[in-house]
Write a protein that binds this DNA or RNA. Structure first.
Lengths: 235, 235
DNA sequence: CGCGCCCTTGACCAGACTCAATATTAGTGG
DNA sequence: CCACTAATATTGAGTCTGGTCAAGGGCGCG
């Protein structure tokens, strides 16, 4: 599968600009002999809830989702991550969720103890944690207070690089974007707290209303990103 | 208002056990001349979304909620914090949510730059961030996948110290607990992604079913915590 | 005792879910 | 290149949970 930019799949802010000298510490960890690179095919489990959390994963390319399951099988996708994002940081010494690739992905596997041992690593990790926290807060608003239509609209706008997030640069000259949706309808539904049928119906409705144009199932053009954003219940 | 333990209000894990030598660094920051103590009455805004995020707040007693607003006034409470918790850590240099006391609270105000300057501070902050992240993931499952009844049940079980979270110790000899609910129905509704009427109806229903006994509006006894937990859609 | 603020309850409604059928799409092999 | 298959997505009909609107009830405080 071709190279997937994080923006194709994840609502991601630009990669954290590292802070000078500390960057070198982090770079040293990245290239440490204890650090390994791994390539996984799409829809491959990286780790499961309850497994020991003794290493971190950095996405070098591709996309990964984190999800939790209830006893009866209900699933909630809690995070969707892209290139440059770090995951595997758990509060305890066991993972609190499952991690699975959405598409073929390259991962850099880093020893947790090593990463947490220097201030550069700590800073880099803390920055990632803060980004994740901000995203999850936004997502809590989506899940708790937005209508199904608004959820899908928010999701689509977030797919557009540098849009739909804090620090959105606003419309460029031409406010059109084509996004690749590297998630199945089921995965989108489990991310947005909806059912697969509702997601499908809403995308069809958007198509009928001309809010999106479907090139293919997984490739949509948004003729007016700003307009879609206005339908997303923006704050 | 009397002293409120975090467990009276927040589903909080035990305070992070600090790690030896680094604790002293953190203790030094806590007692630094740049650190101030402040007492706020109940329902007082600590900061608003968009204000500069140049300091951290540690709750010495009381409880604080963080919430976000949509343009049309819909509100989602994204975190409920208690004694020992840190807040004000934003991804950018502006707060991404509002902070408001639930009850009269004592806050320790810490300079952000100072706290982030040493590895002890970084570690302490990173630990708090990880705890918050784990809680928000759990809350995303609640908001995205649980029924109204399960949401309220989950909320009540989390009010019981050391129950309803990862590392729940299971039923003690007598599995009865009395909890103080230091939130209005509106706040609970905005936390659980419901309406005030639904929260009210469900608590009434629980009362009828004997799942809870109401001493007062804000004081409930749960005769069988484990039983309530089983109704909460536990994973 | 009375006023105001929450909270509770009821009746009705609507948005999203469930179940079921059909249509596409991607992948495989002839 | 096309036919066939399995997986995924769409669409429809009907139901139900939770929301909306509106009216009463209870509690704390002055």
């Amino acid at each position: 599968m071709a190279y997937i930019d994080r923006h194709d799949v994840a609502h991601a802010p630009p990669p954290p600009p590292p802070t000078g000298a500390r960057l070198r510490e982090w770079e040293a960890i990245r290239t440490s002999p204890r650090t390994r690179l791994q390539r996984l095919p799409e829809h491959e489990i990286v780790f499961r809830e309850g497994e020991p959390a003794d290493r971190l994963y950095e996405i070098t390319d591709g996309a990964v989702m984190l999800y939790k399951l209830l006893a009866d099988g209900r699933r909630q996708v809690v995070e969707v991550l892209g290139r440059g994002d770090l995951f595997g940081l758990s509060a305890g010494d066991e993972h609190d969720c499952h991690a699975e690739t959405l598409v073929s992905s390259g991962l850099r596997i880093i020893d947790r103890r090593e990463a947490e041992g220097c201030i550069g690593g700590q800073q880099y990790i803390a920055r990632c944690l803060r980004d994740r926290l901000a995203e999850l807060r936004d997502h809590a608003v989506l899940l708790g207070r937005k209508s199904a239509f608004e959820r899908v609209a928010t999701f689509l706008v977030r797919m557009v690089p540098r849009r739909g997030r804090a620090g959105c640069t606003g419309p460029a000259q031409v406010d059109t974007a084509t996004v690749r949706i590297a998630m199945t309808r089921q995965e989108i539904a489990d991310y947005l707290g909806l059912t697969i049928e509702t997601v499908s119906r809403i995308i069809s409705d958007m198509r009928r209303r001309g809010v999106v144009v479907a090139e293919r199932q997984d490739r949509l053009t948004i003729p007016d990103v700003c307009g879609l954003c206005r339908l997303s219940g923006r704050h």
